[in-house]
């Protein structure tokens, strides 16, 4: 049985600023609690979870114009998976980040939903305070 979960968070920064973090696939572990590392090679990203489980992912969409990032977990217990992060501008310095998880088994969608909710909170915290490893990595990359 498949299931779909969606989490969202209004973030008090511009959509462009939020997308700078979200659109860089290799920074995921710096704002997603429970992911300890990630490595990107081409359109393949490999993440390692806090439990030590390693999961390969295929990056499907990284669209800076729509500000949409999509990926598919291709290993583990998943018969099917699609992760989607959308960043939508609300005002000049305000945006809405939406993180959706579709999965079979459906139980994993719920687990991912909980984890992505935590990730959006951490993303917002770092962006709004300007402090955190993802922001640091961004600065390093910018300079």
């Amino acid at each position: 049985m498949r299931a779909s979960q969606r989490r969202h968070r209004v973030i008090e920064v511009s959509a462009e600023r939020a997308w700078e973090v979200v659109g860089r696939a290799a920074l995921l572990h710096l704002w997603f609690p429970g992911i300890t590392s990630c490595v990107v090679e081409g359109d393949t990203r490999t993440i390692v979870l806090g439990s030590g489980v390693s999961l390969p992912e295929t990056i499907l969409t990284n669209d800076a114009l729509q500000r949409r990032f999509q990926y598919r977990i291709t290993g583990g217990l998943f018969a099917e998976h699609l992760g989607t992060i959308d960043v939508i501008a609300l005002e000049e310095n305000r945006c809405l980040a939406i993180y959706s998880s579709d999965a079979d088994p459906g139980v994993m969608a719920i687990v991912l939903g909980g984890a992505t909710g935590g990730a959006l909170e951490e993303l917002a915290r770092q962006l709004e305070t300007g402090v955190g490893p993802a922001i640091d990595a961004l600065t390093t990359t910018e300079t």
Binding site: G34, I35, L49, V111, G114, A115, G118
Partner: peptide, 14 residues
């Protein structure tokens, strides 16, 4: 806290 926690997010599991 939830048992089903592959991300090891919860203190009980950690």
């Amino acid at each position: 806290e939830p048992f089903l926690d592959p991300f090891n997010r919860f203190t009980e599991n950690r």
